Amino acid sequence: MNPSALPGQPHAEDPFHAGERELQARAGVRERLAEIGRRVIRDHMPDQHRELFGKLPFLVAGSLDEAGRPWASLLAGAPGFVTTPDARTLRVGALPQPDDPLARQLAVGQPLGLLGIELPTRRRNRVNGRVRALDAGGITVAVEQSFGNCAQYIQARSPLPRAAPPREAPARVEREGARLGERARALVAGADTLFIATAAAGGADVSHRGGRPGFVRVDERGGRTVLTLPDFRGNHFFNTLGNIALHPRAGLSFVDFERGDLLLLTGRAQIVWDGPEVQACAGALRLLRVEVEQGLWLASALPWAWSAPEPAPQLQATGTWEAPHRS
């Protein structure tokens, strides 16, 4: 449906905060985005977004810990575990694992960024809001912003059932420090998909990034692991980078699609605007660099395996890093 035909913000003010506006101006799209944003960023979920959320087997959640560090977590359940009682309320019928940072951050009034992404069809929609209620069965979120994202850079995959660990044997949790272990580095270096959480202006947000396997570069610098990923052409909203401009931190989540394991990382973030590094990765307009501070490996956190990926067509115009960089 043509976005201009959909109801948008019920008020006249610009929905973008100062960091997003700054980056839009730098990219030369500020005036155009000011008008588009009022049409496509809503204070409620349109019916097609509600329909998508109801079909999903997992939901990505972005939150902030007590130190102001973002984390990107995944909540999973049988399709139908996410419901929308009305256009301004989203209900998640699941809770994070006890060791997931999201479990410590959940409280009424806390901001949450949510991403619904249907990998087989490459559909994705975003909801940003605040926790309205918590109970033993899940989380109720009051919607403050709702908007769609395009299907670019999403690798299509379909969920396949796999044997879940016994109920009395919860997922194994291993902690990662500022220097990632070999298994974590291997997962990141071979990833074609990640989820990134950021925060600014009192809210939280989470988004998707995709590329050819190897699009995330893994370096070791001063005893820390540093991850560098290209920022490809997108919708020019600059939600993620605009947040980082104001609050230079990010949380990254990587999925082992064969085993259902999750790697959750958080660290300091910076934007690399130009120079030889940007030119070294085909398709990159700029780079995002994250210096890891800590992380968690959650084994068997997702109850499925996934089919082999069908690469997004946009990847034909993108590249990877030719060799690791160490300093």
Rank of each mutant, 00 (worst) to 15 (best):
L52W: 10
R249Y: 12
G234E: 04
I244T: 08
Q48G: 08
A18F: 02
V226N: 01
Y153C: 02
L134A: 03
V143S: 04
L102D: 10
V29N: 08
H236Q: 14
P230G: 05
E35Q: 15
S146K: 00
F58W: 11
T193G: 02
L263F: 06
A164T: 07
Q145F: 07
P57E: 01
N235W: 08
T121N: 10
R217W: 02
P170I: 10
L95D: 06
A171M: 06
L74Q: 02
E293I: 04
M45S: 09
E22N: 00
P213E: 08
L52H: 12
F81I: 07
Q270H: 15
A25V: 00
R38M: 08
R286T: 04
G54L: 05
G109A: 10
T266Q: 14
R26V: 01
L106H: 01
W321H: 14
P111E: 01
V141K: 00
L59K: 05
Y153G: 02
D219R: 15
P85A: 12
V173E: 11
G202P: 13
G93S: 08
L285R: 09
S63M: 14
A136E: 12
V29P: 10
A107M: 09
V92Y: 01
R175Y: 11
P57G: 08
P70E: 00
A164Y: 00
H208R: 07
E322A: 14
A169F: 09
S73A: 15
S146E: 03
F237D: 12
R233I: 03
P230E: 00
T266A: 14
A94G: 03
G181C: 13
S327K: 12
P70Y: 05
P7I: 01
T83C: 03
A201W: 10
A189N: 05
L75T: 05
P276A: 14
F254S: 03
E51C: 02
Q279E: 15
L296T: 01
H208C: 03
R289F: 12
A78I: 00
L112N: 01
L265A: 08
S253W: 07
D274L: 03
L114E: 01
L114W: 04
I244K: 12
L102I: 11
P10W: 03
